[in-house]
């Protein structure tokens, strides 16, 4: 079925390409539809909204954001390749979702189906506690968990997610046993922390930025300290080799011509290089990364191996 479709589509696309070769030189010449495979208000939405005005400023066209939530992103990604590959349809992608989900079950797409263009930022995992918590440092927490195995509860966003995988990895490295309570998103998981339903949270640096007056970060899973939180140590400094988080990027339908992919990759890179964009993103607790179209394969190969191992360890894949 698929090959049949390709047989028909490939020459058609080639013809279209030749016809529109002139037009592509001025890409983009009309608004680009940017589908977020999650609901509005989440971090995928907010970071896309951050890009919106910069895109318009630099390239003169609108990014039109719409939502296609369902199945933790799977509904959107499964349909990405059915969209026209004319360069005017792009979709947000998230790691580790696009790696872990297809490994769990048949969710309608495979990681390799997605034509990834650019990974533009990541939200580092962080251990978050309430500002009035008894845990002042990560060591306090580990000591408590050692004395009370299983008693310390962490809220986090979903299972098989960056939060969950970080919890499992950390438990193993620190030799402790904690209880992970999955909530349906970072918002719900923060609410549980603030309401003291749980003792701590596996959240993101962005949680610390958004609720700076009410929470404290104990450690962040980054190579270097986050510029917004110069006083919070990294796990590496404390002796745990954890650098992790949720990466977000952009993908296009696999029928999109190579030339357009390279062009879009360069455009997203230019937004990332903008000083004001960087400032805004970092102020919200995000960290920019620049994995462009050329570097994508190496990046994904590394991440695939890492996440698959962690997911197996966490028991979310068999």
């Amino acid at each position: 079925m698929l090959t049949f479709k390709r047989l028909i589509l490939a020459p058609l696309c080639a013809v279209l390409l030749m016809l529109s070769a002139g037009a592509i030189a001025e890409y983009p010449e009309k608004p680009i539809s940017y589908v977020i495979p999650f609901g509005p208000g989440g971090e995928s939405d907010i970071t896309a909204r951050h890009q919106q005005p910069f895109f318009k400023n630099k390239f003169g066209q609108d990014l039109v954001i719409s939502y296609k939530p369902g199945g933790g992103g799977a509904v959107g990604w499964a349909q990405l390749n059915e969209m026209p590959g004319d360069g005017y349809n792009i979709m947000g992608v998230n790691l580790p979702h696009i790696i872990v989900k297809p490994l769990q079950k048949d969710v309608g797409f495979k990681t390799s189906d997605l034509a990834l263009i650019y990974m533009f930022h990541y939200t580092p995992d962080a251990v978050v506690v309430k500002a009035d918590s008894q845990f002042k440092t990560l060591k306090d927490m580990i000591d408590y968990a050692k004395k009370n195995p299983g008693k310390l509860t962490f809220s986090g966003s979903g299972k098989g997610t960056a939060n969950h995988l970080a919890q499992v990895t950390f438990d193993k490295l620190a030799g402790i046993k904690t209880t992970y309570v999955a909530f349906k998103g970072t918002g719900a998981s923060v609410t549980a922390l603030l309401g003291k339903q749980v003792g701590a949270q596996w959240g993101y640096t962005s949680v610390g930025a958004k609720h700076s007056d009410k929470v404290r970060l104990l450690a962040v899973a980054m190579e270097q300290r986050h510029p917004r939180f110069p006083d919070v140590p990294t796990f590496k400094e404390l002796g745990f080799d954890i650098v992790s988080g949720a990466y977000r990027g952009i993908a296009m339908p696999s029928s999109t011509p190579e030339e357009v992919r390279v062009k879009l990759s360069a455009m997203i890179g230019r937004i990332n290089a903008d000083g004001e964009f960087k400032k805004r993103m970092e102020n919200d607790g995000f960290a920019l990364v620049d994995v462009d179209y050329k570097g994508m394969k190496a990046f994904m190969d590394e991440k695939k191996a890492g996440y698959a191992a962690a997911a197996k360890e966490a028991g979310v894949i068999k």
């Binding site: 369902g70 199945g71 933790g72 799977a74 872990v100 989900k101 769990q104 079950k105 048949d106 969710v107 979903g158 299972k159 098989g160 997610t161 999955a182 909530f183 349906k184 979310v316």
Partner: peptide, 10 residues
């Protein structure tokens, strides 16, 4: 029905 919101099971 579908991918469970928290446990991510299908």
């Amino acid at each position: 029905i579908g991918v469970a919101e928290i446990s991510a099971d299908v």
